[in-house]
């Protein structure tokens, strides 16, 4: 067994294990921390796929940004009559399990039986410079649109979050 294979299985087990802890935990704070280990495992999977820039971006944006946002959301919305309540309600367990297991079986069947048009693996190289060149040439329009989208998202969330302080009776 190669070293790469061992690394793949270690990180796959880390990712899937913490993702299942996230889904099946009763405590939402435990879920958030399990999500952190899932995201770190996904970043390691990106490294195994030679996507160095994307792995760094995953760590910065997901673990450093989105996860902190989610933890703040948990803290701000878990108060129930002056004490904290981190329990999550689980409903529809049987239909959800049936649907997700069906999705898993179908996807696995499709993924394993299809003959993918694979190519010979070339020696990998650093992707940062190539990605930068592509962002400034072929992907210039999506790049600018993504910038505008982020600006709109920032303005929209600031507007929605600061309306919290105004009285609910004076709408508009």
């Amino acid at each position: 067994m190669e070293f790469t294979a061992i690394l793949f299985y270690v990180f796959a087990i880390l990712t899937i294990g913490s993702a299942s802890i996230m889904v099946f935990s009763k405590n939402i704070v435990h879920s958030a921390f399990a999500l952190m280990f899932t995201l770190i495992g996904v970043a390691a999977i990106y490294v195994l796929l030679y996507a160095d820039f994307l792995a760094a971006t995953q760590l910065l944006v997901y673990v450093g940004g989105i996860l902190i946002l989610i933890l703040f959301g948990v803290m701000l919305t878990s108060q129930e009559s002056a004490k904290l309540n981190f329990k999550t309600v689980t409903v529809n367990v049987v239909p959800a399990s049936i649907l997700s297991v069906t999705a898993l079986v179908l996807l696995t069947y499709v993924f394993t039986t299809t003959q993918w048009a694979s190519r010979n693996l070339e020696t990998p190289q650093e992707t940062v410079e190539i990605l930068g060149t592509m962002l400034m040439s072929d992907y210039l329009l999506p790049f600018i649109i993504a910038g505008v989208l982020l600006l709109i998202a920032i303005i929209g969330s600031i507007l929605m979050a600061t309306r919290l302080n105004s009285k609910p009776t004076e709408s508009n």
Partner: peptide, 10 residues
């Protein structure tokens, strides 16, 4: 696929 089905479950 496993991650996707866990996400659907959540």
């Amino acid at each position: 696929a496993i991650l996707f089905s866990l996400g659907i479950m959540a």
